[in-house]
Design a binder for these strands. Structure first.
Lengths: 197, 197
DNA sequence: ACCAAATGTTAGTCACCATTAACGTCATCG
DNA sequence: CGATGACGTTAATGGTGACTAACATTTGGT
């Protein structure tokens, strides 16, 4: 109804990506089971079963979406962690990665931490693994900053910080991104210091 | 299959509450559309359409659930705000209310900020209103602590703090509640100070 | 121009699910 | 007792939605 039938040339280009993006937006808004194949097709200008030319099914679409998100996050974290000067700088860089992702792709973040339960088993394990590795990247850095703190506490604090940073989809529109990002960074920094300091 | 058929006397007592509790757990785990009436009935030992003796339908059940949650939160906030000595104490009390609710009823918190979109219109508006009033309770207190800070920033910071506090369902089992609660309080306090200070 | 792969379309099919109907049971209260 | 209402049960019913089948159309390589 709104988008999609722009240029007929673009259609051939990256339908897959277009579908994934539209599906993410819809899943974030109404939940996996609240969105039909027809809805997703309609959002990109094709209708219904055309999606089966690009994906094995609705489950496969979700699996690929979450796998992509968790891969990207983890990869960014690894890059940042290896290229860093010290734990303080690494933590700042990790925060920036997560904040950038959350503010630039709110729908992906929303889907990422709501819909894992709907991913069928082969992929679910892998996504969980990537998520765990991502968390461990944070925990490692935090442990360097405060070796005496038990790992369980560091992990819990990390999840709390994710909750803080991933709140952007909920407060969309309240504040401009240019104001939101440094505020989130400062809040997260202070929260971490309070948790493990 | 698991619970429910304990005492036949308890059955007559509070079926409604039992149903609401089971439904909350299921909705939190699989999402509103991922749970069938049959599932909910089965979870309390009756099967399927028996629920219609207690609720007008699946939508009505969700509406009542969210209305109850937002009412309880707002009422607690009002109580705390009127009985308080000063803004600092009020803020501490508000934090304790939210932390207690989030750690004691993780399923309710999860449903509360995921499923509003599935509530039909008469109730949706009312729930939104209660949620807005709850947020305003926080914003009012924060404004007293820092009058120069623009309201939009206070609102965004409040949402971020909710994200932090409501992260408990995600980090369930990492840390004992007795350790988790003061840590969340300290993190939230520090995050607020960093945001508006 | 011709073939094959890619990409769509529309019309089934089949399962699931919310809701209703029609029909018991049992306790309470007159 | 006997009726009434609370609470359940098992069969429809009707709609929706994922997926498949059968049938175009386009397109790029030869």
């Amino acid at each position: 109804m709104t988008t999609a039938s722009d240029t007929p040339t673009r259609s051939r280009r990256n339908r897959r990506a277009e579908i994934l993006e539209a599906a993410a937006r819809l899943f974030a808004a109404r939940g996996f089971h609240g969105v039909s194949i027809e809805d997703i097709g309609g959002a990109v200008g094709v209708s219904g079963p055309a999606l089966y030319r690009h994906f094995d099914g609705k489950d496969a679409l979700l699996s690929e979406m979450l796998l992509d998100i968790s891969s990207r996050l983890r990869e960014s974290a690894v890059t940042v962690a290896t290229a860093a000067a010290g734990p303080e700088e690494t933590l700042d860089a990790l925060l920036d990665v997560q904040i950038a992702f959350a503010t630039e792709h709110p729908a992906l973040i929303t889907v990422h931490d709501r819909e894992l339960g709907n991913v069928p088993e082969p992929a679910r394990r892998q996504i969980r693994r990537l998520q765990r590795l991502y968390v461990e990247e944070w925990v490692t850095v935090l442990a360097e900053l405060h070796p005496a703190c038990p790992a369980a506490r560091l992990r819990a604090a990390t999840h709390a910080v994710f909750g803080l940073l991933n709140s952007t989809p909920h407060s969309a529109g309240e504040l401009a991104a240019q104001d939101m990002r440094p505020m989130l960074h400062a809040m997260a920094r202070a929260a971490i210091a309070a948790a493990i300091g």
